[in-house]
C-alpha cells in the first residue's frame, strides 16, 4: 500500500490560513491504514485547524469529509457538488489522490496536500511501516530471493553488497539490514544461490520514472467499457 505521513501542522496552517472555506478531504484506503489521511485523521485535522483559526482570530470555515478512494472517479461523484462550494481542498490522500482531484477540478479550486506521500510499504506490526518496493516497473524479485535491492539496499546496488556491509547491517544505518546480506542468506535457504552467478544485462531504467510518466492500458477492458457505454446510450440508459 501507499504509506504517507501528515505534514507538520504549522506547514499545513501556512497553506490554509489565507483561505475562507476549506474542506479537509480524507481518503479511506491506504493513507487511512497508516493513520495519516483517512476520514478520521481529516476530522481531527479540521478540528485542530478550527482551533488555530480561533486562536489567531481568523474567520475560517473548515469542514471535513472522506471517501473510500481518491484514485478512481466514481468515488468522488457523491461529493462533487459539496466539494465545489469550498475555496480550498486540503487533501489528506496520497500524492496520486491530490493530482487526480486537482485534475478533476481543473483549476477551479486549488487542491493542497495535507500529507507527505512516502513510499510503497507493508505493515509488519501495528504502527510500523516499511518500504519494500520502489515501483520500478521491471521486477527482478525472482532473481533476488524476493528481496528488492532497489529499495532495500540504501544504494540500490544491483550486483551484490558494497564494502559498507557489516555483519548483516548497512553502513548508512545500523538499524537497516544489508539487503544483499539478506538476499544471499535467503537464496542459500532456497537453494538458488547459483542464480547470482548468472551475468545480468545492464538494467533498463526506462520502465522507472526515468522514462517519463508511466501508463498501463488494458485495451480489452477499455474496449468492453466503450461498448457498454455505447449500448447504454442507444437504449437511453446513458447518463
Amino acid at each position: 500500500m501507499i504509506v504517507g505521513k501528515q505534514k507538520p501542522f504549522d506547514e499545513i496552517w501556512d497553506m490554509v490560513k489565507g483561505f475562507k472555506k476549506v474542506l479537509v478531504y480524507g481518503c479511506n484506503t491506504c493513507v487511512a491504514i497508516c493513520h495519516a489521511g483517512g476520514s478520521k485523521e481529516a476530522e481531527l485535522l479540521a478540528s485542530m485547524l478550527r482551533m488555530r483559526a480561533k486562536q489567531e482570530g481568523l474567520d475560517l470555515l473548515i469542514d471535513s469529509a472522506g471517501i473510500e478512494r481518491h484514485c478512481e472517479p466514481e468515488f468522488f461523484e457523491p461529493l462533487d457538488e459539496k466539494v465545489k462550494t469550498y475555496d480550498l481542498i486540503l487533501s489528506t490522500a496520497c500524492g496520486v489522490g491530490v493530482n487526480f482531484l486537482a485534475d478533476r477540478l481543473a483549476g477551479a479550486i486549488p487542491v493542497y496536500p495535507g500529507i507527505n506521500t512516502s513510499f510503497y510499504g507493508a505493515v509488519p506490526e501495528a504502527g510500523f511501516f516499511v518500504e519494500l518496493c520502489g515501483g520500478c516497473g521491471n521486477c527482478i524479485l525472482h532473481l533476488t530471493g524476493g528481496i528488492c535491492p532497489i529499495v532495500r539496499c540504501s544504494k540500490s546496488l544491483m550486483n551484490g553488497p558494497c564494502g559498507g556491509t557489516d555483519k548483516g547491517k548497512c553502513e548508512v544505518s545500523s538499524e537497516t539490514d544489508c539487503a544483499w546480506f539478506l538476499i544471499v542468506e535467503r537464496m542459500k535457504k532456497l537453494g538458488t544461490l547459483e542464480k547470482l552467478f548468472e551475468v545480468q544485462p545492464p538494467r533498463d531504467w526506462s520502465t522507472a520514472t526515468h522514462g517519463g510518466p508511466r501508463r498501463i492500458s488494458l485495451e480489452h477492458i477499455r474496449a468492453y467499457e466503450a461498448e457498454e457505454e455505447k449500448k447504454a446510450t442507444l437504449t437511453g440508459e446513458g447518463k
Binding site: 481531527l44 485542530m48 482551533m51 480561533k54
Partner: peptide
Amino acid sequence: LDHIHILSAFE
C-alpha cells in the same frame, strides 16, 4: 473515547 471527542470538547 476517541480523539475527536476530546478535540471537540476543547473546540
